[in-house]
Design a protein around this nucleic acid. Structure first.
Lengths: 342, 342
DNA sequence: GCAATGTAGGGAAACGTTACCACATGTTCC
DNA sequence: GGAACATGTGGTAACGTTTCCCTACATTGC
């Protein structure tokens, strides 16, 4: 007895046909009370669990949702993954999580994988323009929703934070504190999300009538190490900026580390803002002033939209914007009253 | 043309049989040069991608590995997930990630899910005793490996950190600094990993000849909030302990927050140690003294063991221990020279 | 009394893939 | 010159499930 138990084993044990067992399992069609009892007993007795593979093949459709994130180690995305998983489970869907390592080719691979799995839908959280992934999604006719992707307004449903709202708020906050020499650190030029944040910075700086030069912006990447590099770079500037607005929290941590390692204090000497309100932002040294959106709402909204599509909704692509909020903490303060540090 | 392209479409386009296409795809058996060329062209032309569901059903076996983690938001596990994913991909396996929310019933669900998916193997990272999951794994004949599970030495291959080595090292470090009033915070009584860490603490305390009372240990859970609660609890003690040894980094962050919120400084007034060296440990306030193991090595070793089993290895269950290392940072210092705070 | 409807259940054909067989052609070896 | 083998290809039966189509018996409504 080395084979896994199938619906046929259950049927035999219950003395009915596989058809009837199937009807019982799917609660479709008539099943008599007596047969039902025998089936239930047979299932308990055999330890039967239906094959997802066979079901998927038959229906050409599975109960799996594929979630692609740029970096599962980024708390923003691990929170998203957790929320999506919780919601999916309660709706009877399984979640397959893929880490794209921020690479467009891996995203495309992920989309193909979803198609090969007959996935019910795909959730694509990307910092790229998704040039490869989007046509593939259409071609494979996958129900899809994009998260925090700014470059695909026409392609399918997307959920984003306000395109520039985050940096808007950060700059506004810094200006209110009295800063005028503000620079922008981090983010990847190829990334839609980074571009939006940078543009928001530039726009708000102009709106405030503040100086904006080639040296005001240094784009590197989204990691803490990238932030560190940006910090080092700004340390070479003369005069030193009084505030650094970062593309995300990890960047901000890196920037602060770079500053501290050179004896520059935050926020006494230089103010730093983050973005996303990663859990550790509240325990970083100093506690990080940051901008965020309701992460749970973010994932929830996206999942709801996907469920809609899976349910057959054919409305034109929708766009939901999650509002931003500034969370002032300890990494920002009014600029030094006396002479600049350097 | 609303159906997805199948191997039959490719065969027709290439003017060969599905058998030949299948042989080409699996590089099994003979395929002539000319046929091969036509097949390649046909695949490009049709955009064919084989169905994982059909393959899985036919073989009663998929190229999927199921990874179950207690909490994907815990950086320790997201790092693990990332490493596993990277390794799996390079071996042609897909990874399905499941978050068990630290609940044994969800772990069992995950095991069942793996069986239903005809998963090639399952990696179970758990903080529970896995009482539900283990028999299910055996019953379903799944290739499996356990991560950081102390309670299943006989069941299957496991990879652990040294059972008590972590707390050993932390206590040793604190004693060397001159501490004598050390308490233990965090972890869940029902969790094997927490039990090991607590026991390591107790053992090392005894070895050092230090006092150990009912109030020396406060077990709550593994999150930052749990740590905060533990911190609040220890604040009620008189005299205040001079050092707090935590079950993991998140706990330590919470403890530090609780202390700071009451005006107690770390490490000037109280020293705190963490465990796991979460990425943010190096930027927390203060930078966290912690104990860790090589996270990448951890996941790599586990994955290799699983691959072994998948490859048919029938050796008796193996046990690999990842060595621990203490990383001294800023959250520990010699105890106050003068009078105790309180 | 018989058509319509409701209830209960079975047979068998798919879904897309692979693996076992079969059948061809050569080519090599005694 | 035939046996053995290498090379190349196709037919078809599974894998486990669902679903369409049957059949069969009650019950209801006229």
């Amino acid at each position: 007895m080395s084979h896994r138990t199938t619906i046929r084993d259950v049927a035999r044990a219950a003395g009915v046909s596989t058809t009837t067992v199937s009807r019982y399992l799917n609660k479709a069609g008539y099943v008599g009370a007596e047969a039902q009892g025998r089936i239930e007993e047979a299932i308990r007795g055999t330890g039967y669990a239906p094959s997802i593979m066979a079901r998927g093949l038959k229906a050409l459709r599975s109960n799996l949702v594929v979630l692609i994130v740029p970096d599962i180690c980024n708390p923003f995305y691990s929170k998203m993954a957790k929320t999506v998983q919780r919601m999916a489970l309660s709706r009877g869907f399984g979640v397959v999580l893929l880490d794209s390592d921020e690479r467009a080719d891996k995203e495309a691979e992920g989309v193909l994988f979803a198609a090969q799995m007959y996935a019910a839908g795909i959730m694509l959280a990307s910092i790229n323009s998704c040039a490869h992934a989007v046509p593939l999604i259409r071609e494979q006719r996958l129900a899809a929703v994009g998260l925090s992707s700014y470059d695909l307004p026409e392609a399918f449903d997307i959920v984003t934070v306000h395109k520039q709202g985050g940096t808007n708020l950060a700059v506004r906050h810094l200006v209110e504190l009295g800063h005028r020499q503000i620079v922008f650190a981090g983010g990847r030029p190829s990334s839609g999300i980074a571009t939006g944040r940078r543009e928001g910075f530039e726009r708000q700086m102009r709106r405030e009538g503040l100086p904006l030069t080639d040296e005001s912006i240094y784009e590197t990447g989204f990691s803490q190490e990238d932030g560190y590099r940006a910090g080092v770079r700004f340390l070479a500037l003369d005069p030193l900026p009084t505030a650094i607005c970062c593309a995300n929290d990890l960047n901000a941590f890196g920037v602060i580390n770079a500053l501290n390692d050179r004896g520059i204090r935050v926020p006494e000497d230089v103010s730093v803002t983050g973005m996303d309100d990663v859990p550790y932002a509240s325990i970083a040294k100093p506690r990080l002033t940051t901008v965020t959106n309701d992460g749970a709402l973010f994932a929830e909204k996206a999942f709801e939209m996907l469920m809609d599509r899976i349910g057959g909704c054919t409305a034109p692509p929708r766009h939901f914007e999650v509002p931003n909020v500034l969370i002032p903490r300890e990494s920002t303060a009014p600029p030094r009253a006396g002479a600049p540090i350097r």
